[in-house]
Amino acid sequence: MKISVIITLKKDVLDPQGKVIHQTLDGMGFDDVNEIRQGKYFEIDTKETDNDKAKAKVEEMCKKLLANLVIENYKIIDPK
């Protein structure tokens, strides 16, 4: 089963990379952008076949390694 995770920076955390990407897009003519925040995306292929169990394990992975909860939020995308 494949499960995806999206990690985003919490809203009060400075994201200089997002800022620079925003400025560059602005320079390229995409001048209607309000803000850009850069994040991370993971695709996890697990042997687990039970949806709920798999989600619970991925949640544990997020808390213990994939995300740093001081600065990041995680969102698990429901497996299809």
Binding site: V13, L14, P16, Q17, V20, N68, V70, I71
Partner: peptide, 15 residues
């Protein structure tokens, strides 16, 4: 990252 000291270290402000 171990949590032995509080906080995190982000990318330098001016990249």
């Amino acid at each position: 990252e171990t949590g032995l000291v509080p906080g995190v270290l982000l990318r330098n402000k001016y990249l």
